[in-house]
Amino acid sequence: MTVIVLVLATLGFRLLGKLSGSARFATWRASAGHGLAVMLVMTASAHFVPPGVSFMPNHADLLAMVPPFVPFPAAVVYLTGVLELAGAVGLVLPGTRRAAGACLALLFVLLLPANVYAALADVPFAGGTATPLWQRVPEQILYIGVALWAAGILRRPAGRTATASPAAR
């Protein structure tokens, strides 16, 4: 679901940029940053939803994902929700986009053990089945890449252009 939100929000912002001529969404990079921000607001909200709300992930679902070696798991769930919200705000503000992208990439790396644990321990999510490891790890890698790319940290190597090289022509 989160990948779908990321993709649809990114496409929506890019389309908005094309149709309106808005400089804010004039590039795929900026649109992806805003798309990731939308996704983060959605995922962060689950950190604060009380148990018993069955139509969406909630605090209890996320608490079950925390590996046993992590101290103060409830506090960690709340903290990661706050960090996701802060990262979302940082991505939409041009002055903080680079720092937010770097910090979010680090957060996604730090959240990877919880995703691995949840998959291996078969922790159900939002009343459904556990998300398999083969899906969780590539999703985290995608989020890391989008955060770094939207922040302008991942760029095309210098000297490369979008046109084909002379050898390829």
Rank of each mutant, 00 (worst) to 15 (best):
Y143V: 03
A147S: 11
S45Y: 04
V82W: 09
P51G: 13
M65Y: 08
T96N: 14
A119Q: 00
G101L: 06
V137G: 05
S54K: 15
A150L: 11
G101T: 04
V41D: 12
L93W: 14
H34W: 13
A126C: 14
I141D: 15
G33F: 14
V70K: 00
Q135A: 00
G81V: 03
L36V: 08
M65F: 14
N58P: 08
V38F: 06
L91V: 15
A114E: 02
V70P: 00
V66H: 00
G90Q: 08
L104P: 02
T43I: 06
R155Q: 10
G152E: 03
A74G: 01
Q140L: 06
V137A: 05
L142P: 01
V76M: 11
F48W: 11
E139A: 11
G52M: 00
L104C: 13
A44Q: 06
V41L: 11
E139Q: 10
R29F: 04
R156C: 12
G35F: 11
A118D: 08
G35L: 09
A105Y: 09
T27R: 15
V76S: 08
P71S: 02
L154Q: 09
S54V: 05
R97G: 13
L62G: 01
I141S: 12
L93I: 10
G128V: 02
A130C: 14
L110S: 08
V82K: 05
P138L: 00
D61G: 03
T96G: 15
V53L: 07
F69S: 06
G33R: 05
T129D: 12
Q135P: 06
L63T: 10
G95H: 12
H47T: 03
Q140E: 15
V82F: 14
V38K: 13
S45H: 05
V49N: 02
Y143W: 10
Y117I: 15
V49G: 02
T129F: 14
A46S: 09
P138H: 00
M56K: 10
A64H: 01
A44V: 04
P124G: 09
A74H: 03
L133W: 00
L79C: 05
L63M: 08
L79Q: 05
L154P: 03
T96E: 13
F55L: 01
G95T: 06
V77Y: 09
N58L: 03
A114T: 01
T80V: 09
L106C: 14
A74L: 12
A86N: 11
S31P: 07
A119G: 01
V66Y: 00
G145R: 11
L112M: 09
T131C: 04
L154S: 08
G128I: 07
P94H: 09
L111K: 01
A88T: 12
G128P: 12
P68G: 03
W134F: 08
G101R: 14
L79F: 06
V116K: 02
V41Y: 09
T131S: 06
V41R: 01
A130T: 06
V38R: 11
A60T: 02
L110V: 08
P73K: 13
G152C: 10
V146D: 07
V146N: 12
